[in-house]
Design a protein around this nucleic acid. Structure first.
Lengths: 138, 138
DNA sequence: TTAAAAAGCTATAGTGACTACAGGTTCAAG
DNA sequence: CTTGAACCTGTAGTCACTATAGCTTTTTAA
């Protein structure tokens, strides 16, 4: 790979779409790169590393605001322990909620086969929260 | 509760915010209700039942487009088995992905304590996908 | 009865994290 | 030198709401 490369090459190298790269630049997550004489963006390795970091963080579910913090930590050689821990807890909560949900869906689906034709358990349960074992009031 | 009631009363009865009720009407998920002489919305029990159905479905994670289908099924006394099954699979996939994620976060966090001061495992792993045990390439 | 407060109205813009489009320009290959 | 792929900017759309501004109507208390 040459020293300076295009947005398409950066896209290919990181798996991040061209539009998304430009979007990250617009919101200040990626720095403005150099430009060719004709005005096209020209990146180098530092950009690629930063973008890979961003994409990897996104894949692990961090928000762009989290990532802003993570990038600062990275630059200052600080520790991102607390951000990671906070995120871990949020992920765990989401897992718990979704598991309860899946159990309820399983129950609805399995009981549906038993009903008379024209009587759908799924619709019934959705119509009447009293029939629902899951607490999703909050 | 009287036969006809206001949007605020409907909101209170269903736990659905006033703005959200108006939004559902705008996108055609809730029918246009009667109006008072002064132009305020006046609902009755049928509206409340429909809105409860919608909210309960949302709490179980169905999209508004899913719910449009579910409402049709409900009106036609059809079975929503397939919609529920499809959704169950989507939820299960999400759980699997999030569980892998949480494991990776746990690993990052636990290994962070072992590093020298100034060396954060979290940042390291985020910088280098090769150090990551989780497959989140797709 | 009347004044104030609460609740309602419409229309519009904002959220997060992109994605898609229109209509033009630049670049690299043949 | 021509063609076509890749690039540019700017704007609008996605989902499922939420929030705001600036009004009008309804309800409650004095």
């Amino acid at each position: 790979m040459p020293t300076l490369f295009s947005i398409g090459t950066l896209s290919h190298a990181t798996g991040c779409k061209v539009e998304t790269i430009r979007y990250y630049e617009k919101i200040g997550l990626m720095p403005e790169p150099a430009r060719s004489e004709g005005g096209q963006r020209r990146y180098h390795r530092r950009h690629q590393e930063r973008l890979s970091f961003i994409r990897h963080s996104r894949e692990l579910g961090f928000t762009l605001e989290d990532i802003r913090e993570l990038l600062t930590m990275r630059e200052q050689h600080g520790c991102a322990d607390d951000i990671a821990r906070r995120h871990r807890d949020a992920v765990q909560n989401r897992i718990s909620a979704l598991t309860a949900l899946r159990n309820e869906l399983d129950r609805m689906i399995s009981e549906c086969g038993d009903g008379q034709p024209g009587e759908c358990r799924v619709i019934e349960v959705l119509s009447d929260h009293g029939q629902c074992l899951t607490d999703h009031s909050g």
